[in-house]
């Protein structure tokens, strides 16, 4: 429900990066870890299936990757738009 009144390119670019990151965040946890687990039943991982792995290990690893990617990407974006400190 973000509004568009802040119509500058920097903020729009930032919002787009956030949207992609949150889509991945939701996919690995709510998706692979819970809702889509039945679909991943066929992929065995150590005595269980890929969905269980995502719920107890994979989602946390992906969360880490998302935060570091976001920090790197947006710090770069700051410099591109000349709004860094």
């Amino acid at each position: 429900m973000a509004d568009n009144s802040s119509n500058n390119a920097y903020w729009q670019a930032n919002l787009n990066i956030i949207k992609v990151c949150l889509a991945i965040w939701a996919l690995v946890s709510f998706g692979f870890g819970i809702l889509l687990r039945p679909l991943l039943k066929g992929i065995p991982v150590g005595g269980t299936d890929l969905g269980f792995w995502f719920a107890q290990q994979g989602s946390i690893l992906v969360f880490l990757a998302i935060i570091f990617f976001y920090a790197w990407r947006v710090n770069k974006l700051d410099a591109e738009h000349g709004v860094e400190e």
């Binding site: 956030i18 965040w25 946890s29 719920a55 107890q56 989602s59 946390i60 969360f63």
Partner: peptide, 21 residues
């Protein structure tokens, strides 16, 4: 067992929201 994965995902996934939002 599996049902308690909520704690693992919930208590770490919040940091993504914190970092991004």
């Amino acid at each position: 067992g599996y049902a308690t994965s909520s704690y693992l995902m919930g208590w770490t996934g919040g940091y993504v929201l914190l970092a991004l939002l």
